[in-house]
Nucleic acid binder design. Structure first.
Length: 213
DNA sequence: CTCTAGATGTTCT
DNA sequence: GAACATCTAGAGC
């Protein structure tokens, strides 16, 4: 019996396992369909890299809300980040969406990212995704597991094989050694840097088979 | 290709 | 004041 991840599993499984299982799922948007191919897990009382580490604030409140809702926050005062709240309410965890692989034409997205040099530069980073798809704080709290939602996630029926690495952008000693960044095998071209396909950084990545609970 | 500076809201010291 | 889940342009190799 295949274990399909749903809102209940998102709330009950460890956030890093839920992130692994979400890989290759589809994000449905008004701009088209995309595959979630790079995700990072954050949360739990022992993760100093997580916004939830020091408890709720006005910014991170949706991390402590129901699993499956969007947590959207402003990073470095410049870029919106799209996350999926995980774990039970009050516990504080989320999965950061770092890269998407398109399942249809990217033509319409180019106007939102005029500086992009090619298609691989449109969705290969958390800030790029929110620019391309016009995501901002207005989306914070939106239920991404509502089957009738204009924005929603359709979970992959089968788990994806994946690479794992350290999370990007964390300071030394603030969770930088935790291997909670996951990238779908076969979608390396669409991932953010550093990519597992780069020979210079290949040793930072370990390849892992499919994981299921 | 790699490296660096600068943009700047939220949170913490 | 300083740090921070980032991106871009520009410099240099």
């Amino acid at each position: 019996m295949p274990e399909l991840l749903g809102r209940t599993e998102l709330a009950e499984w460890p956030v890093e396992i839920a992130a692994q299982r979400l890989l290759a799922s589809q994000l449905i948007t008004p701009h088209g369909r995309f595959r979630l191919i790079e995700l990072e897990a954050y949360g739990g009382s022992e993760d100093p890299g997580s916004h939830a580490f020091r408890g709720p604030t006005p910014r991170n409140l949706t991390m402590f809300g129901p699993a499956g809702h969007a947590y959207v926050y402003l990073s470095y005062g410049c870029h919106w980040m799209l996350n999926i709240a995980a774990r039970p309410e009050q516990e504080g965890a989320a999965i950061l969406v770092r890269a998407l692989e398109p399942l249809e034409s990217l033509q319409a997205l180019r106007a939102n990212r005029p500086k992009a040099r090619n298609d691989f530069d449109l969705l290969s980073g958390p800030g790029k995704i929110t620019q391309a798809l016009e995501i901002s704080r207005e989306m914070d709290g939106l239920d991404l597991f509502d089957p009738d939602g204009e924005w929603r996630i359709e979970v992959a029926e089968e788990p994806s094989a994946f690479y794992r690495s350290r999370r990007v952008g964390l300071a030394v000693g603030k969770g930088d050694e935790t291997l909670w960044r996951f990238i779908s095998v076969g979608s390396e071209r669409w991932a953010s840097r550093p990519r597992p396909s780069s020979t210079a950084t290949a040793e930072r990545f370990s390849r892992v088979g499919r994981v299921r609970m």
